[in-house]
Measured scan of single mutants.
Amino acid sequence: YDEVAAQGEVVRKLKAEKSPKAKINEAVECLLSLKAQYKEKTGKEYIPGQPP
């Protein structure tokens, strides 16, 4: 859960800094992968601010 939240912060920071699109896309792919792992382990969708 904490990893997903941390990666979400990374994506937000990159977007706020107007980073190159390729770098943002890479961070988003990582975030989506973490969300998929979270769902696989818990059986639930990741919802920000609602730990399992």
Rank of each mutant, 00 (worst) to 15 (best):
L31I: 01
Y1Q: 00
V28F: 03
L32N: 14
G8Y: 15
E17N: 11
P20G: 11
A36H: 13
D2W: 14
G43Y: 02
E3K: 15
L14E: 15
V10C: 15
Q7P: 00
K15Y: 07
L34S: 07
P51M: 09
V11T: 04
A6S: 10
L31S: 05
Q50C: 12
C30E: 15
L31Q: 09
A22Q: 12
E29L: 05
V4P: 02
E29D: 12
Y46I: 01
K21V: 13
N25S: 10
Y38C: 01
I24Q: 06
K39M: 07
E29G: 08
E29A: 12
Y46E: 04
A16N: 11
V11K: 01
V10L: 15
V11H: 01
G8E: 04
K21A: 10
A6P: 14
E3R: 03
K18M: 12
P20D: 15
A5D: 07
E45I: 07
A36D: 10
K15C: 03
E9N: 11
V28W: 05
L32G: 10
E29P: 01
K15P: 02
D2A: 03
V28R: 09
S33N: 15
I24N: 03
K21C: 11
V4N: 01
E29N: 14
I24C: 03
A36T: 11
A27K: 03
Q50R: 11
E3Q: 14
Y38R: 03
L14T: 07
P20M: 05
Y1D: 01
V28N: 11
L31M: 09
A5C: 12
V4S: 00
S33C: 06
A36K: 15
L34R: 07
A6L: 15
K18D: 09
Q7T: 11
L34C: 04
P51E: 11
A5P: 01
K44A: 00
L31K: 03
A27E: 07
T42W: 10
E17G: 10
Y46A: 05
K39D: 02
L34G: 07
Q50M: 11
P51T: 06
K39Q: 09
Q37C: 06
K13M: 09
P51H: 00
S33R: 13
I47G: 07
S19R: 01
I24H: 01
V11F: 02
D2S: 15
Y1C: 01
A6Y: 05
P48E: 14
P52Q: 01
D2I: 12
L34Y: 05
Y1I: 14
L14M: 06
S19I: 15
A6C: 02
K44E: 04
A22M: 14
E3D: 15
Y1S: 10
K13C: 01
